[in-house]
Amino acid sequence: MPQIPVAFQTIGLLILSNLFMTFAWYGHLKHKAAPLLMVILVSWGIAFFEYVLQVPANRIGHGTFSAAELKTIQEIITLTIFIGFSVLYLREPIHWNHLVGFGFIALGGFFVFHRWT
C-alpha cells in the first residue's frame, strides 16, 4: 500500500479537526434556547474529537512544516471551513468585506511559506 505524503496526512487531519472545532465553537448558535451548561458540555464532547485529530496532525506534520507553518495552515483551513459553515449551517451570508478580510489573512500564508533569500 502506498504511503500517503506527510503534507496530505497533515492537511487532511487538520480539515477534519476543523470541522469538529467549528461545530463545537459555533454549532450551538442555532440552539440558543438550550441551557448554557448543556451547550458547554456538548461542545466539550465535540471538541474532544477535534483534539483527537488535531494533535496527530501537528505531530505528523511537524518537521515537514514548522510550527508557524502548521498554525498558518490551520488558520486558513479554519476560515475556509467557517465560510461554508456560516452560509450552509447558520444561514448567515458572507459579505464582500468578510471575504476581503479573510483574503488578507490568507495572504499572510504567502509570507509565512515564501522562502526569502
Rank of each mutant, 00 (worst) to 15 (best):
T22E: 00
I94Y: 05
T72P: 03
I77W: 02
L79S: 06
G27W: 01
E75C: 07
I81N: 03
L70A: 09
E69H: 09
I83N: 09
M1A: 13
I81Y: 07
T72V: 15
G63Y: 06
G103D: 03
Q74S: 11
Y89V: 15
P56A: 00
P93S: 14
I94R: 12
S43C: 13
I94N: 13
Q9G: 01
Y89K: 12
E92T: 13
Q9F: 02
A57Y: 04
L14H: 06
E92M: 09
Y26N: 07
G61Y: 01
L13S: 05
K30P: 03
L99H: 04
F111G: 07
Q54R: 04
L29G: 06
I60K: 00
Q54Y: 10
P5E: 11
E50D: 12
Y26I: 01
L16I: 14
A34D: 04
I40C: 12
M1I: 14
P93R: 15
K30H: 08
L88T: 12
L14N: 03
F113A: 08
L37N: 09
F110V: 14
T64F: 14
A47P: 05
R115H: 15
I15P: 05
A106T: 00
E50Y: 14
P2W: 08
H31W: 09
V55K: 03
V87N: 02
E92N: 11
F49N: 01
H95C: 07
N18P: 07
F20Y: 02
G84R: 04
T117Q: 14
P2D: 15
W44Y: 10
M1C: 12
L53C: 05
A47N: 13
M1T: 10
W116E: 15
L29R: 14
A67M: 10
I15A: 01
E50Q: 06
A67C: 01
L37T: 15
A47D: 14
L90K: 05
K32M: 04
F20H: 04
W116D: 09
V100P: 07
H114T: 13
F49G: 01
S66K: 06
H62W: 06
Y51S: 08
G27S: 08
R91Y: 03
W25A: 07
L13W: 02
G45N: 05
M21E: 07
M21Q: 10
V52R: 08
G109Q: 11
R115T: 15
H28K: 13
M21Y: 10
L79P: 02
